[in-house]
Design a protein around this nucleic acid. Structure first.
Length: 551
RNA sequence: UGGGGUGUAGCCAAGUGGUAAGGCACGAGACUUUGACUCUCGCAUGCGUAGGUUCAAAUCCUGCCACCCCAGCCA
């Protein structure tokens, strides 16, 4: 399924193209390598790579690696891997740190033109001088230093002569601006850190506000697409570009964030879950990290279709998880191999079936496709069926097994339940039924029954481990995790978020592969997990089937 | 509180002066060797709110309300 969607960003691009503000489209995907990618990043990735693709332009991957305090090589590697998994390719790969010399030269130009100055105020003082939301700031006493002194001081900052935090370079704009970002923003700070890519080669680091617009211009970016939090940085973005003397003028376009109700997003929250041992790692299947989703069995196109269908607007969206689930199911339904598996087995014995006799039956691998392959399976006297497919006390809304009820065994015969055994503790141990001749599936049997259940022949079964997942966050505290910033860590973890069943059976007639997706009839969509316990196959349930059972 | 942004159904979201697209969810029915899938039908006299302009307003104007972002030498 290909989702076609246009949005306001394309309107802007079309207008720019039409009015000659640009003659091509170039975007960039600018992650900071400070965490693993999660579903909230997919929209940005789809937009940047997708728009470039759509307009025949290019999209570079550019790491915004200007703050070594939060970054590491682990994250730069994982980001590339995740982008590839989503099916995108960058044109070139760049790092903000590549442009440090060029950034530095622009800074020198600004100083020479009296548009930037070295400030000796401490971080606390800078904050004090900045004023508040309602009161204007006041000028730094160092604001009017001579060009020569600024040049000298900046050079010495670069040479590592001053303590970190003791001085910084600031753009000289307007301390009384109602926009806090324009009150002489810091554009360079001193940091003596070992950067993952450039080591200790620089003692001064440009801030995002300074490097980002410049880097966009160097690369020839036409549309710099970013989150809503940068909307009031746009005047600063433009100030930097206009005062840089660079030819290319990129345009910053903001769009709103996308959140999923009940999902914990945000790098720092996911990190906390991992650190606290509440999840097994960044690829825990319960997480909405790309790694987690992937291990859970979600296919990348489902994610793309989801963000495309959700649309792009300027109002922050808190989306119902069922909306995502729909796209996950939709794709899985098309590609999954149908297989019978019993998760919670109970024995079913056919009274009127000859002991030891097995009959070949035919099952379709992909009944959702016209030209499906088929496989042979075996029906015998004893089967394993799902415990919940039998009920002791009949209920009019229940149309599976109870004494006297008729049900079809998928691919085989219609059977009628006759009795059941209980052990001394009152647990049901065996169910008995009669099969009806002439009702085999695929023959021209006209008899119809309400229910069809799946089963496993224990002589042709693999015992496997199955992992079922539910929402990580306790439902009652879901409201507290609505938005990324609101997820303060107060949420409760759902103790049932992960269930491991180790007494499950699947047909042994199927070849199981890591890349394949399976629908266990009536039990949901599954994929193989890399972990194996006791040499048993381990299946993760990606998602359940839609449940429309009448209550 | 100064500035910026956003308010269309339970959740997303089209709409740009001509009488409220679409998807998810939900409800009813058909089909069915999966209570899945598929199909059919239903689902806003209403567009945050109060006024105003107009033959005509979700769209234009004015006031008000709600939510989000900004006072890092983070991005």
């Amino acid at each position: 399924m290909e989702i076609e969607a246009t949005n306001f960003i394309e309107d802007i691009i079309n207008k720019d193209l039409k009015e000659g503000r640009c003659d091509h489209v170039q975007t960039r995907h600018p992650p900071e390598p400070s965490g693993y990618l999660h579903i909230g990043h997919v929209r940005n990735i789809v937009l940047n790579y997708g728009l470039a693709e759509k307009y025949g332009g290019i999209c570079n991957l550019r790491y915004d690696d200007t703050n070594p305090q939060k970054e590491s090589q682990e994250f730069v590697d994982s980001i590339q891997d995740d982008v590839h998994w989503l099916g995108y390719n960058w044109h070139e790969i760049h790092y903000a740190t590549e442009y440090f010399q060029m950034n530095y030269e622009v800074a020198i130009k600004l100083i020479k033109e009296g548009k930037a100055y070295v400030c000796d105020l401490s971080p606390e003082q800078v904050s004090e001088y900045r004023g508040t939301l309602t009161e204007p700031g006041k000028n730094s006493p160092y604001r009017d230093r001579s060009v020569e002194e600024n040049l000298d001081l900046f050079e010495r900052m670069k040479n590592g002569e001053f303590e970190a935090g003791s001085r910084c370079l600031r753009a000289k704009i307007d301390m009384a601006s109602p926009n806090m970002n324009m009150r002489d923003p810091v554009i360079y700070r001193i940091q003596y850190l070992n950067h993952q890519r450039i080591g200790r080669s620089w003692n001064i680091y440009p801030t995002y506000d300074f490097s980002h617009p410049l880097d966009d211009c160097y690369e020839g970016v036409t549309h710099s697409i970013c989150g809503p939090e940068f909307e009031d940085h746009r005047p600063l973005y433009n100030w930097v570009v206009e005062n840089s003397g660079l030819k290319n003028h990129s345009r910053q376009v903001e769009y709103a964030n996308l959140y999923i109700k009940g999902a914990i997003l945000g790098k720092r929250f996911i990190k906390k879950l991992v650190q606290d041992g509440l999840v097994t790692g960044f690829d825990d299947p319960r997480l909405y990290s790309l790694r987690g989703l992937r291990r859970r069995g979600v296919l990348p196109n489902s994610l793309k279709n989801f963000v495309l269908a959700a649309g792009i607007s300027k109002s922050n969206a808190l989306i119902d998880p069922e909306f995502l689930n729909h796209f996950i199911r939709d794709e899985l339904n098309q590609v999954s191999k149908r297989v019978m598996a019993v998760l919670n087995p109970i024995k079913l014995v056919i009274n009127n079936w000859e002991e030891g006799k097995e009959e070949e039956i035919e099952l379709e691998d992909y009944p959702q496709n016209e030209e499906t392959t088929k496989r042979t399976y075996y029906f015998g006297k004893t089967s394993l069926i799902e415990r919940e497919d039998f009920i002791e006390e009949p209920n009019p809304k229940f149309y599976r097994l109870y004494v006297g009820a008729e049900v079809r065994l998928k691919g085989a015969y219609i059977v009628k339940c006759t009795s059941f055994d209980k052990d001394e503790n009152g647990n049901i141990t065996t169910i008995y039924a009669d099969y009806e001749e002439g009702t085999k599936s695929g023959t021209n049997c006209t008899k119809k029954v309400k229910g069809t259940i799946h089963w496993i022949n224990p002589n042709h079964a693999k015992q496997v481990e199955v992992r079922l997942f539910e929402n990580l966050v306790d439902e009652e505290s879901q409201d507290e995790v609505e938005g990324q910033e609101r997820a303060t860590g107060d949420f409760k973890i759902n103790p049932n978020s992960k269930t491991i069943l180790d007494n499950c059976y699947v047909e042994d007639t199927v070849d199981y592969n890591f890349d394949d997706r399976y629908q266990f009839i009536r039990n949901g969509y599954f994929c193989l997990d890399k972990d194996t316990t006791n040499n048993k196959l381990v299946f993760n349930r990606t998602i359940t089937l839609k449940d429309t059972k009448k209550k």
